[in-house]
């Protein structure tokens, strides 16, 4: 079970959060066209390693968090607010 350190509420159980997908991606502008949106919605690196993720703290502050999690060890190295730039490691998938 993950324990996620919410910057607002402190460390809470995974069950208080809702996973909201890959936070390494930026939604394209709508002018970017079909190919960009297809890539945005459907294409995933699915890395074995560091992964930047969106987690919404639905049972707490209802804030959207960025979580840097290792998909193999489940280690969480960093949790930040939605607008914070994440300190991505070298080997983090794009």
């Amino acid at each position: 079970m993950l324990r996620i350190h919410c910057p607002w509420c402190g460390t809470r159980d995974e069950s208080e959060f809702r996973y909201r997908g890959d936070a390494g991606r930026v939604r394209p502008a709508h002018e970017a066209g079909l190919a960009s949106f297809s890539a945005h919605v459907y294409e995933r690196a699915n890395p074995r390693g560091w992964h930047l993720e969106w987690w919404l703290h639905v049972a707490g502050c209802r804030q959207l968090l960025k979580v840097l999690r290792h998909t193999q060890s489940h280690e969480i190295r960093w949790v930040g607010r939605a607008e914070e730039p994440a300190p991505l490691p070298e080997d983090c998938a794009p």
Partner: peptide, 10 residues
């Protein structure tokens, strides 16, 4: 004070 879940409810 804290917001959380208890007995599966907010």
């Amino acid at each position: 004070a804290a917001a959380t879940q208890m007995a599966q409810v907010a």
